[in-house]
Amino acid sequence: MPQEIMFWEALVRAQDEEMTNDPLVFCMGEDIGVVGGTYKATTGLYDKYGPERVMDTPISENGYTGLGIGASYLGCRPIIEIMSVNFAWLAMDQIFNTAAKAHYMSGGQLKAPVVIRSPGGTAHQLGAQHSARMEKVFMGVAGLRVVTPSNPKQVYGMLKSAVRCDDPVFIYEHELMYNMKGAVPEDEFFHPLEGSEVTRRGKDVTLFAYNISVHWCLQAAEILASQYQIDAEIVDLYTLSPLDRKGIIESVSKTHRALIIEEAEPAVGVGAEVMAIINEECFYELDAAPVRVSAVNVPIPYNHSLEKAAIPNANDVVKAVLKMFGR
C-alpha cells in the first residue's frame, strides 16, 4: 500500500535511506542540522547521523558548494541544500564553472556526483529578491542534470537516483510545495532522471508543465473538461535537462495543439525551448501555433495583487486554451 506523505517527508525519507546505504553520503546547508532545515527536509537526520554528516554550513554558498564538489571528486556523495534558489545565484560559479565542466574538461578523469537541491518560485509576498524562478538558467548549461519534481513520489525517487548518479544533479523544488501530500510506495524505488510523464490523458490539447505548474494545469484541465468539453492532456516535464524530446513529440502528434505553462518570465525559458523542439521535430503535426503561458517580465513586486498578476494560474491556462480554440 503506498503511503500518503508530504513532500518534505519524502525528502527526509530519501536522504535517510541514502545515508544509511552509503557512509559517504552527507548533507550540507544552512540551518539543516540542529534546526532541521527551513522546509524541514532534513528533520531528524542531525540526531541520527551527527554533525559530520549533517553539516550546518556558514552562509557561504559558493564556498560550501565548491567544497561539496571537491568532496565528490573523491567519491563522496554530498547532498547540498541551498535554502532558496535566490541564494543559489551566489553559488553559480562553482555550479557552472566546476560541477558542470569537471568531467568534460578532465577528459573524463573526474566526476562530480554532487546533488544540489533548492526551492525556487514565487511564494507569498517575499519580494523581488526572494521570488526568483531560475529553472531556465540551470537547464541552459551543458554538463548539469536538472530535474523538477511535482510530487512527493517523484522527489523521493529522483533524489535517490540523483545521489547514486555520477553526474551533478540539480533538483529544483518549490517553496509552496513542501506540505503537498502524495502517495509514495513503501518499497524503495528509484525514479528516472530523464523523461516525462503523462499526468492526465487527453486528446484535444497538450499542456506541458513542470513542478508547480502541473498543479495549475490539473485544475485547468478539470475546468476545460467540465465547462468547455475540451479534453486536455498534461505532460509533466519533470526533467528540464535533458528535455524529453520523445515525450514532447508523442503528445503533440496525438493532440496537435501545445501550450507550455511556466512560472518564470517567458524569455529564454522552458516554453521557448519546448516550442523550439516542436518546431524542429513535429511542426507539421500542429493544428495551431504553440502558446506559452508565462509570468510577466518583471521583478516580483511585494504587493499581493500585483504579485498575483505577475504569475500565471489555472485561469490563465484556461483562457489561453480557449483562445487557441477561438472560443
Binding site: 523581488a128 511585494y302 504587493n303 500585483l306
Partner: peptide, 15 residues
C-alpha cells in the same frame, strides 16, 4: 503594501 509606501508597495519589509 500600499502605494503611499516608501517604495510604493513594490519593495516590502526587506526592501
Amino acid at each position: 503594501a500600499k502605494v503611499t509606501g516608501c517604495c510604493k508597495g513594490l519593495g516590502g519589509s526587506m526592501h
